[in-house]
Amino acid sequence: MNLFRLAGDMSHLLSVCVLLLKIRATKSCRGISLKTQELYALVFVTRYLDLFYSYISLYNSIMKVTFIATAVSIIRYMRFDKVVKQTYDKEQDTFRYAFLVAPCLVLALVLNHRFTFTEVLWTFSIYLEAVAILPQLVLMQRTQNIDNLTANYVALLGAYRGLYIVNWIYRYFTEPHYRQWLVWISGVVQTALYADFFYFYTKAWKHNTRLQLPA
């Protein structure tokens, strides 16, 4: 494992920690899209099915279990915690699951490396992860006064994707058989979705103002 991959994973892990910190410390999930969180849970469950039949490393297994467990925990807070659930912007979080899940499923059935149940689900998870941030980005556009923890959460997620791309470039030149065009294209699409966000994020940071995305 190279340093870029590790930094990407740590950024991903940190993003989850920031989100859990926000929810637990402020007892609020204001500005957080439950749709995005549930899509991520679906991404993790479909991708990490291989926990049951393929072992890569202890590091990988621990991270997979951690991502599934934290995703479930976040959803439980947002849906069932008496205090937290009252802060959920339900009326604003209107993105339809079907618009994202259905095309990803069709694409995974058509474009995959092997037509097996687990491989199609894995491919589906790659496509779905690429677009799962969309409900969160839409919600942030609608929300005035995005708080710092929410902004940092999304920034860390974007950093994770960017670092994975650097990791792929590194692996492309150091591992002769490393060719994963399907993952790369999805990853580039996913990272591109953050471009707009990062433009306004750095601008707000430079001017020391609150992040606000133009509608």
Partner: peptide, 10 residues
């Protein structure tokens, strides 16, 4: 490709 894809990333 013919090579089995190894999913070693997260």
């Amino acid at each position: 490709g013919g090579k089995k894809e190894e999913h070693d990333e997260l």
